[in-house]
Amino acid sequence: MKNDTPKVFKSIFALFVVAIFMIGLFYAFVSMPKGWGVNVNNRVSRLYILKNVRTATRLLDSGKFFAKGMKPLRAEVPYKPIKFKKTANLEDGAANVVTSIVVDYRGFDTLGEVTVLFLAASGVMMLLFGKRVKPKRKKTEPSLIMYVGTRIAFAVIFLFGIYIFVHGHLTPGGGFPGGAVIASGILGLFLGRNGYTPNHAGLKVFESLSGIAFVIIGLIGLFSVKSFLANFLPTGIIGNLYSAGFISLIYIAIGMKVGSELAAVVDSMIGDTKEEWS
């Protein structure tokens, strides 16, 4: 549309586009299957969704828990109460339910999130691409306390980030928060000293290796269990560190990827570059 078209036509065109979107949304909302049309048991068993185990057992005993004609996903398995550090192999053995839903049931979705973050980081780097130049005016050096303090704090923050994503299947946390915590520690290093540069080759290698590792774990699931990103490791006992199969492996990969990406974003934002657009 040219710029010299009258304003009325532009607004009518915009209204038209908005109306088409609204009609499509309304139609999608009307034609969506209702709640009782979707059989939830085909995807996740209902015992897993319910938070309160006691209510679930009472409802199961009275026979009111499942609607008519529905059977639980594992109806042939007798129900046993869940005990920490004793029960083996509940669904996929993760004590933190959120993690097992994010990585195990919706693993493909998580792969998409990682891809989105990668695209955003590469966009930032593409915009700020250029030759590094030294600033003309001399920057003021941060004080000695800042220099020493950030270096001490970096060790603790780094360890905490690793703890968050290695322990993701037992305590709240996971790959994304762990990577963000590590990146904020690296931001502290940037603030502590003028002219700090991270090892760019190391960041690149970490980022690409962890991305490849995520896909390779998914492909192992595809070839051994016949489903992409399926859990192919033994699930162990709830509450142990070596439980929940491949969740901790995937979270280690995601944590390394997110941490190195966000650190690279901070690095390219903070450095002075000379634009080299053609």
């Binding site: 933190n96 959120v98 993690t99 968050i164 709240p172 946390g173 996971g174 994304f176 928060p177 963000a180 915590v181 990146a183 904020s184 931001l187 966000l262 974003v265 901070v266 934002m269 903070i270």
Partner: peptide, 23 residues
């Protein structure tokens, strides 16, 4: 929702504020 709380504190309050200030 402690999972979301950790993510919000690390990204929203930590990193994005710093990136906005640098920008």
């Amino acid at each position: 929702a402690p999972d979301v709380a950790i993510t919000e504190a690390a990204i929203g309050a930590g990193l994005s504020t710093a990136i906005f200030v640098i920008a």
